[in-house]
Structure formats: structure tokens, C-alpha cells
Amino acid sequence: MYITETFELPRNASEHVKEELQFLPPSKLNVDRVSKTFATRTGPLKALDEVSLQVAEGEFVCLVGASGCGKSTLLNMIAGLEKPDSGSVTADGLRVTAPGRERLVMFQEAALFPWLDVLGNVIFGLKMKPHLSRRDRKDVARYYLELVGLSRFEKSNIHELSGGMKQRVALARALAPNPRMLLMDEPFAALDALTREQLYGDLQQIWESRRKTIIFVTHNVREAACLGDRVMLFSPHPGRIREEFLIKLPRPRDINSIDLAEYAGRITRSLKGYKNGNGGVAE
């Protein structure tokens, strides 16, 4: 059982709640030579070309590349929202064919439901667990709202929240069904720099306390270097993984540290190389 010290469950919380908050081992992922072509008005567009990726249990992997390089497509495939034309995605030995709540997605825009309040949004994913009572769901949802620091806002309407708070709610909502893998699609892209920095810290902390396998799509190189154990570089047309960087920095990492800037600089130089058509430039 894994419960952070910051939050005390109600004394009368049911066994179901404790079970629900239990630590689940993070997922292992294997993407094997997936390809995907989209039909567009200007002809077929090869979004992904034989992309392979292995992610270990509990690893934090960032996918970086220019827009249109297929990184979001890959994320959607891992989520089960899209099917590859060829190749396969396997999570924990099982082939991914449909969305499942072991792998939850946090989207780039706020995909929160405006007709529900904050608590209602976090509860939504718990409704598909029939063994939980209404009270159980509330207890679980409140635990995660506490984790993202928004307990005081459980009754708020979505439109009353700032962009950063919305993404915190989205994070709580994604964590609540206790997935074993978290898929994040540029979740902080729309936020201002200050809010983002704070969320980098929070996300790392949450990742420490409730370890999940995380796949994080971004076009922000510094963000990737700050968060990832590994950064995968994509090049567009067709979408391919060109290079991978291991980020060997201690955590928690500060986005403004010099070591991190150095990593980011190397990654950026590589990325620029693909744009100029020089192919993958080694460090």
C-alpha cells in the first residue's frame, strides 16, 4: 500500500478505497515497427514509418519533434485511440487494440467536462468501477485532488479555474482510476512559463510518489530534458525516431539548471540537423 503522508484518508474509508489507492506496478511497453499513413487532401501522408520503442516499467520517456512528426499519432496508438496500419503495440504482453484505463491520456487542451464540477470530473473515470460506492469514489477523488493541491476547489466549475489549475485537475482525473501508464500529449503547452515550471516540479514529485510509466509528448526540448529519463527525437516526413538521449541528471531537476541547459542544447542541435535535411547528427 502506498499513500503519501500529506493526506489522511477519512477514518471510515472503506476497504475498497484502500484497495483502489494501492500501488500498482507500472506498465512495460513495446512498440514494434508501427507505420501509419493518413489520407490528406494533398495525398497520402506517412505519419509514422516503422517506429519501434521499448519502455521499461516506471520509466519516464519524452517524445520530442517538430509538429507533424507523428509523435502525437504514436501516443494515440499507445492509448488505443488509433490503430497502426502495420506493426503492433504491446503493453505488459497484451496487444493494445482499444482504449483501456490502464493507460490514461492527459490531453494538450483541456478535455475537462464543463458540465461537471472539479470533483465530478475526477470521479468520472471511477464510475466505470462498479464495486466502488459513491462515497468510495469521492474519497478516492479527494485523495488525488489533494495530491495535485486543489482540495479547496472541488466544488468549482471548470471555467472558473486558471489554465494551470485545469491541467492539475486533468492530471488528477488521469491518475484517479490508478492507471499503470500515463500518456501525456503536450499537457503544458498552453500554459505560461511560471505555471509550467511549477508543474514540472509537481509532476516529478507525483511521479516519485505514485510511480507510473509515463510517455510525454512535447516540442519543448528543455521540458523534455527536465522530465524524461530518456528523450526520443523524431524527424518528420515520414515520422521516424532518429536519436535517443539518456538524461543522467539527479532528480528533482530544475528547469533552469546549467547541466540541463547543456542537454537541451545538444538535443536542439540534433533537431535542427533534421530540419536542414542533414540527417541525424551525432553529438
Binding site: A79, G80, L81, P99, G100, R101, R103, L104, V105, F107, E109, A111, F113, F124, G125, M128, R173, P177
Partner: peptide, 10 residues
């Protein structure tokens, strides 16, 4: 996106 979000939540 609402639909997709709901799908991933089961």
C-alpha cells in the same frame, strides 16, 4: 476530445 477522453477512461 470529450469523447476521446471518456473512451480512455473506460
Amino acid at each position: 476530445i470529450y469523447r476521446r477522453a471518456a473512451l480512455t477512461m473506460g
